[in-house]
Design a binder for these strands. Structure first.
Lengths: 215, 215
DNA sequence: TAGATTGTTAATCGATTAACAATC
DNA sequence: TAGATTGTTAATCGATTAACAATC
């Protein structure tokens, strides 16, 4: 009974469902139909039902979905209650912002170590956590067994670092450095956040608007 | 001769082509076939040819593509040489990191103003640029006509701010605040960067790996 | 029970891949 | 010219949408 692989299109929509359901819950709304939700989220009701049914029948015919229960289910699927041991490497501007701004606990992640190769940065504290030198990574990983690494290092350092971390047992990378990570192990998960790509996609839209005679 | 709309799947691949071609150019490689490029990028040769032909015949039969020329063409399409007047609002951790870390000029954007609603932040300098108070936004926009706004403000402030900025002539939003922007004008481009969504997608992959008996 | 809305199957649409004639 | 590789059309695949029987 090999449960079939969920497509990544579906998975990428789950966090947004989770977010909208949280919003509804905050507003004290107890039930919602796929139709109502589709209007709010700008999707089709069909797609919502199709998506949710990848994971099981969360709804009830004639009634709809229980907002709190559905949110809880999706949270479970996404693992928001997990405690993924997570390290972050590179505490330049971006690394510091990620460390302090992203709600790791709300995403089921526990930030257990910060690292930088610059000896003037290592030793300092970032919002209450000490920054270790990258030289101590191997020892730290052997002791603490982090499974997730956030990479905020320059592009030219990223690949070698990722290789090293993969060898130390890291199984997922959240990559903020420019350029693609090349990892030999296909079981290691990588999520790239290419800010420049995102900005270029946006400005392309702007250019397209220029060319239209008018709206 | 209505040139047909380019699908957003294609557009989202363009920055990556641009990046890889830059890499090749740096390595002194003058020509490349769709086949060779497909291997390096992990795509099919068919898809590359299909993608590039949306914009015109950049290649030459029997030869392939000229790396520098193709990169230049894609750069043109993406508008990397433009000077989009851009403002950034919200200089918390994330806003400061975006302002200093993202290469706006390389993306065809010119950062002409920084704004924050906190009077203790407004007045300070961030990497050489003064931070203005958000009260001065209207005057600034009337005078300077920015067309792009980067939103690094808290979720509950984002929507009202976006409305205001849209009324002041902003035509594209790069949104880092949590939650979706609701804008009435469909011609305004929005690119959301939901860091938490990206992290949740990644950890879902981790969970899936747990369940597999082994690799 | 009647009305509503799901879960699920079938139809459509779009994007990716394959194939090949055109041509450098 | 012969070989290579594009541009482009056709085939396939997957994702989205529509439809409707099941059921609360």
């Amino acid at each position: 009974m090999a449960k079939q692989e969920i497509s990544s299109s579906v998975i990428r929509r789950l966090p947004r469902y989770h977010r909208f359901l949280g919003e509804l819950e905050k507003q004290g709304i107890a039930r919602i139909s796929s139709k109502e939700l589709s209007v709010q989220m700008g999707l089709t009701a069909s797609q919502i039902r199709q998506d949710l049914n990848c994971f099981g029948g969360f709804g009830q015919q004639g009634y709809g979905y229980n907002v709190a229960a559905l949110r809880e289910e999706i949270g479970q699927i996404l693992g928001v209650n997990a405690h993924r041991r997570t390290i972050l490497i590179g505490l330049g501007d971006l690394g510091r912002a990620i460390a302090t701004h992203v709600s790791f606990p709300q995403c089921g992640c526990e930030l257990i170590g910060l690292f930088d190769s610059n000896p003037f940065v290592a030793g300092r504290d970032i919002s209450g956590m000490p920054v270790h030198h990258t030289d101590t990574l191997a020892g730290f990983c052997h002791q603490e067994h982090p499974e997730l690494a956030v990479l905020c290092v320059p592009e030219d350092a990223a690949n070698a670092l990722a290789q090293q971390l993969a060898a130390l047992g890291i199984r997922a990378f959240w990559n903020f450095s420019h350029g693609d990570l090349k990892l030999s192990d296909p079981d290691i998960a990588v999520e790239n956040v290419y800010l420049a790509d995102s900005l270029l996609t946006l400005t392309y839209g702007l250019r397209a608007a220029d060319e239209q005679p008018h709206g």
